[in-house]
């Protein structure tokens, strides 16, 4: 456990947190950059996903495209874009947006498309326009799954943003690569644990949000936890 003691000592040394190259600044950059990437991906993918989910058309191509995107090795995409665009923050930003799109897209079409057709037909029979159906029926009912997609994207991006330091993306990954080069394992270990903690905290926050946005009427009585957890799972939506 000696390495861990050293790693914690490095991590909690106030001197390492200060300044523009300190942990504080890089942690903030890492978080802001990741959220900016997910925001970018959401702007692109959410409308498309909602459209696919609402109309039920184009699901197959979306599955294929997002599957292929996911099979694309992240490091390959990062280095190709870095060579093409130079060592700026733009290359990792674009690469990460591309990587975040499949999750947001899948969450959106699974969430919106998974709303019971009976419910949608009822809304239509009551005279709701298509826009009202999307905004007032499908959006609230599908929201947990849509947020699940964003949650998955956030995890993916926080992890890949670490890797992006390899092409000069900045953030916490910078410590890992410089530590690997100089053999400073306590620093590498300390920052690795910090990134893991960051990912788990963000994941927990999104998990909580997912629970909170389940509409009141959909929430089922205690004791039927299986049913209650269903709306947040795309599998149930597909089934």
């Amino acid at each position: 456990m000696n390495v861990f003691a050293e790693a914690f000592a490095w991590l909690f040394d106030p001197a390492n947190w200060e300044g523009p190259d300190g942990i504080g600044a890089r942690l903030a950059f890492h978080v802001v950059f990741s959220l900016a990437v997910v925001a970018g991906a959401t702007i692109v993918a959410l409308p498309i996903g909602v459209l696919i989910g609402h109309t039920g058309r184009g699901r197959e191509p979306a599955v294929v495209v997002s599957g292929a995107l996911r099979a694309l090795p992240t490091l390959g995409l990062l280095t190709i874009l870095a060579l093409a665009m130079g060592l700026s923050v733009l290359a990792p930003y674009l690469a990460l947006v591309v990587l975040a799109i499949p999750s947001v897209l899948a969450g959106a079409y699974a969430g919106v498309g998974g709303v019971s057709r009976t419910t949608v037909d009822a809304a239509r029979a009551m005279g709701m326009t298509e826009g009202q159906i999307v905004l007032r029926v499908e959006a609230p009912l599908g929201l947990p799954t849509v947020i699940g997609g964003i949650r998955s994207a956030v995890l993916q991006v926080v992890a890949t943003a670490t890797l992006a330091a390899y092409i000069g993306g900045g953030g916490l990954g910078t410590y890992l690569f410089s530590g690997l080069k100089t053999g400073n394992y306590p620093m590498v270990l300390g920052v690795s644990m910090l990134i893991i903690a960051l990912a788990l905290v963000l994941d927990g926050a999104f998990a909580l949000t997912q629970r909170l946005v389940v509409p009141e009427g959909v929430r089922v009585r205690r004791g039927t936890a299986r049913l209650r957890s269903r709306p947040s799972r795309p599998r149930a939506a597909m089934g």
């Binding site: 599957g67 999750s103 949650r151 998955s152 995890l155 799972r233 597909m238 089934g239």
Partner: peptide, 17 residues
């Protein structure tokens, strides 16, 4: 057929439970 999911959907199930 019923269970066939894309890789992304499976990952979603992983975080969306």
């Amino acid at each position: 057929r019923r269970r066939r999911r894309g890789i992304v959907e499976q990952e979603l199930a992983e975080v969306g439970a």
